[in-house]
Simulated scan of single mutants.
Amino acid sequence: MPAGVAAQLAGASLLVLAIALLPLPWALTGRKPGIPSAVALLATVLIVMGVGLAALRSGLEGTVVSPVGSNVTIWLWLLVPPLLFAGVAVVSRGWASGAAAVLLILASPLVAFVTYAIGPWDAQPWWEATSGLLTCGAGACVLAEAMRRPARRRDATVEPTVVSGPPTVP
C-alpha cells in the first residue's frame, strides 16, 4: 500500500523513467523502431506514466489511488515492458545494448512480482531497490554503448586523400 513520501518518490521516478524510455530503442538499436516496436514503446510509456501518476497521487492524497483501468493497466504493466525490452535485446547493436535490454527485463515489474514470492516482502528491507540497481546498470550499459560507437553525422562528407610525390617515369 503506497504511503506518503515513498509513494511520491516512486511516482516521480516512474514519470522520469517513462520519459527516459522514449529514446531507448534508438539508443540501443541505432535505428528507428518499426511499427510494432513503436506501438509497444508508446504502450509502455503510457502504462509507466499511468502507474507513476497513480503512485504520485497516492502519496499526495494519503490514500491508495488506482491507475486508470486498474486491472488492465496492472496486467499491461507486468507484461508489455518485458516484451518491449526483449524485442530491443534481439535487435540490439552490441554487447552493451544487449546487456542494457536484459537488465531492463530483470528490472521489470514482472520479474519483481515473481521474486516477491521468495519470502515476505516486509521481512526484506530495500527489496524494491534491486529493480532500481538493475535499471541503473542498464543506464550504464547505454552510456558504454554511446561512448563505444559515437553517432555518425549525416552532413559529414569524406574528402578524398591526395598523395603527392615525385612523378613516375615510364
Rank of each mutant, 00 (worst) to 15 (best):
G59A: 09
L60E: 06
L60R: 05
L60T: 06
L60Q: 09
E61S: 07
E61Y: 14
E61C: 04
E61H: 07
E61T: 06
E61G: 06
G62K: 12
G62D: 02
G62R: 05
T63S: 12
T63H: 12
T63V: 13
V64I: 01
V64A: 14
V64N: 12
V64T: 13
V64G: 08
V65Y: 02
V65H: 03
V65I: 04
S66W: 05
P67K: 13
P67T: 13
V68D: 07
V68R: 10
V68Y: 08
G69P: 04
G69C: 12
S70C: 14
S70F: 06
S70P: 13
N71Q: 15
V72A: 15
V72H: 11
V72C: 10
T73K: 04
I74N: 10
I74L: 15
I74V: 15
W75C: 00
W75S: 02
W75L: 08
W75Q: 03
L76G: 12
L76I: 03
L76H: 02
W77R: 07
W77D: 14
W77V: 14
L78F: 00
L78W: 03
L78N: 13
L79N: 11
L79V: 00
L79P: 07
L79D: 10
V80C: 06
V80Q: 09
V80A: 01
V80H: 06
P81K: 06
P81A: 04
P81Y: 02
P82I: 11
L83M: 10
L83E: 07
L84P: 04
L84Y: 08
F85I: 02
F85L: 01
G87I: 03
G87R: 04
G87A: 12
V88W: 09
V88H: 06
A89G: 12
V90W: 12
V90I: 09
V90F: 04
V91I: 13
S92L: 00
S92I: 05
S92N: 04
S92T: 08
S92Q: 07
S92K: 09
R93K: 14
R93N: 04
R93T: 10
G94D: 15
W95D: 08
W95N: 04
W95R: 08
W95A: 10
A96P: 14
A96K: 11
S97T: 10
S97H: 05
S97Q: 10
G98Y: 07
G98V: 13
A99L: 15
A100T: 07
A100F: 11
A100K: 03
A101F: 00
A101G: 09
A101K: 12
V102L: 10
V102T: 10
V102C: 10
L103P: 01
L103M: 12
L104H: 03
L104I: 01
L104R: 05
L104A: 09
